[in-house]
Design a protein around this nucleic acid. Structure first.
Length: 213
DNA sequence: GACCAGGCACATC
DNA sequence: GATGTGCATGGT
């Protein structure tokens, strides 16, 4: 079977098994971006608690977050873990947003995809997964997000090898799928769902995995 | 109590 | 350029 049909086939199996995931779990562009940074190496449950704190404090907008002292921000996002470094990363991103786009996300997302991707990647604390999550889920750009689950699941299925880098893995998906935001959105969400439910580190040979074989 | 979770930057060799 | 380490909470 070709790589293309494998990539498409796995998507079909996942969608059939789990149905639509309605991602990203966030209502505004700002909330999606904050969530993308907070979820670095952290489960979503903890991130959700942190986001609730920000909502209750009514500071979940670029302006409010920008004017909030870093120590207060750190306190609010405490449940998401790594709270000091994440508060700093949020601040660094906001500095970038206000310096280059007057704090306006609409303005930032008007930039061409490739140029904006490079800019965002140059912000300290934003690596490829966080950047692509922001671009796809907040910006609505057609870019495929690769995460730890993607690597684990698809290297086990031999679609790429264990030591493939981020770009290589991303290429496999983007060269074998139609470049559609909706498809990329759903596929990544389904991979995370599969990872959480079946393909944990502690459960490497799942007998009932919906994409087994 | 150990292990894990939707990364990333930085130090060291 | 590869490999190791710090960052930290909350659930299983």
């Amino acid at each position: 079977m070709s790589t293309k049909s494998n990539v498409e086939d796995i998507y079909q199996k996942l969608f059939h098994h789990f149905g639509p995931q309605h991602w990203w779990p966030g209502e505004t562009q700002c909330e999606v971006i904050v969530g993308a940074i907070l979820t670095q190496n952290t489960n979503w449950q903890n991130v959700s608690k942190a986001i609730d704190n920000l909502k209750k404090a009514k500071v979940l907008t670029p302006e409010k977050l920008y004017s909030l002292p870093q120590e207060k921000l750190a306190k609010l996002i405490r449940p998401s873990g790594y709270f000091n470094i994440k508060a700093k990363r949020l601040k660094t991103f906001l500095d970038f947003l206000f310096k280059h786009y007057q704090g306006k996300l609409e303005k930032m997302f008007k930039r061409p995809l490739e140029e904006l991707r490079q800019e965002i990647l140059s912000v300290k604390g934003i690596g490829p997964e966080t950047a692509d999550s922001i671009l796809l889920y907040a910006g609505g750009f057609p870019i495929f997000v690769v995460d730890a689950y993607t690597k684990r699941i698809f290297s086990r299925k031999k679609l790429f090898d264990e030591d493939a880098d981020y770009h290589k893995m991303q290429e496999i998906f983007m060269q074998n799928l139609k470049k559609e935001v909706k498809l990329y959105n759903e596929y990544h969400a389904l991979i995370v769902r599969l990872g959480k439910d079946f393909c944990k580190k502690t459960n490497p040979q799942c007998e009932v995995c919906p994409i087994r074989k």
